[in-house]
């Protein structure tokens, strides 16, 4: 087909200029690359249409909304410049910092979830590499939380934390927080949601970590054993370094996921005044119908996630070990 193309190109070169643009167009249209363009556009159009209508256009529309004060129907009513952004980042001089605080709360939440999620996943993945019969059954059990939605999980954990079921009364008494439920106290509400989130994420993190461990060549351990390395040394100097790209991936994915956590806060943080940023966006959007403000908040979130992804890849790129 490349021969075909070159013949046509040569043909077009032998044409005299006097034959005009029309001929050139015809030749261009007859080229395989051009013919493929038409086909490609045809095949791509369903997906492209959806991407444009429901991802890219809304993205720009969100930017537009964020620069305007909107009415109840979500139409821009008055140009507002970057006032909403200044308001969110507490740069407008009013001294109101609730949005910055909720961003801070989101990061606190991520710091609770991410290390715990990865340590638990690593422990379970090591357990799942034990060489015993029926290990597949245990692997399925460890994976099962993937199939349990955050909504189901949230409904169950709401009852685990509910004083009427007495499931966590012992913990409430142990911690002496002075409220009937872990979810009512400022000091324990966030860790309680974090625990539920770690539980919900176990299946995903476990599966990825296990696949990573299984991808490490066995002969590395064998030669280390010949050199007299202990099991711990094998883990510390082979498993961990070889697994570092996977762990990096999990750090990135879990951080982004934690910062975007919504369902569990909607279910467990119902009327708490102070809540995480994504839940604040929902309240501004849904409860207050402040579409412009909510759009600006969502774009601040977008910027945070983007910066985070870039930083994490830069930092870890130097430290992780690629085979």
């Amino acid at each position: 087909m490349n021969i075909d193309e070159s013949i046509r190109t040569t043909m077009s070169l032998t044409h005299t200029p006097s034959e005009g643009r029309y001929e050139a167009l015809k030749v261009w249209l007859a080229r395989p690359r051009t013919r493929d363009l038409g086909r490609a556009l045809l095949y791509s159009s369903p997906a492209l249409l959806i991407f444009i209508l429901f991802t890219y256009w809304p993205f720009f529309h969100a930017i537009y909304l964020s620069l305007n004060v909107t009415n109840n129907q979500g139409d821009a009513a008055r140009f507002n410049g970057i006032d909403y952004y200044l308001r969110i980042l507490a740069l407008d001089g009013s001294g109101r910092t609730e949005y910055v605080e909720s961003i801070f709360l989101s990061f606190q939440f991520a710091l609770m979830v991410v290390p715990a999620a990865i340590v638990v996943a690593l422990g379970l993945a090591l357990l799942a590499t034990l060489r015993v019969r029926y290990i597949e059954v245990f692997r399925t059990i460890f994976t099962s939380s993937i199939a349990i939605s955050l909504a189901s999980s949230g409904v169950i954990w709401a009852l685990i934390y509910s004083p009427s079921t007495k499931a966590t009364t012992w913990l409430v008494e142990l911690l002496q927080i002075g409220t009937p439920s872990l979810l009512n106290s400022d000091s324990t509400a966030l860790p309680a949601v974090a625990l539920m989130t770690v539980w919900s994420g176990i299946g995903f993190n476990f599966i990825i970590t296990l696949a990573g461990i299984q991808a490490i060549p066995q002969d590395l351990y064998e030669s280390a054993a010949i050199d007299g390395a202990s099991g711990w040394q094998g883990f510390r100097f082979i498993t961990l370094p070889m697994l570092s790209p996977i762990l990096l991936f999990l750090v990135v994915i879990n951080t982004i996921g934690s910062l975007q956590a919504f369902t569990q806060f909607q279910l467990l943080f119902m009327d708490r005044a102070q809540t995480v940023f994504v839940h604040q966006i929902y309240r501004a959007f849904w409860n207050d119908n402040r579409y412009g403000l909510a759009a600006a908040m969502s774009l601040v979130l977008f910027a945070i996630l983007l910066i985070l992804t870039i930083i994490q890849y830069r930092v870890f790129d130097r430290k992780v070990h690629y085979q």
């Binding site: 809304p58 993205f59 529309h61 969100a62 979500g74 909510a294 969502s298 979130l301 977008f302």
Partner: peptide, 11 residues
């Protein structure tokens, strides 16, 4: 790369 939260309101 575009988070769900951004497209949510316009959508």
């Amino acid at each position: 790369m575009i988070p769900f939260e951004v497209t949510l309101i316009p959508n």
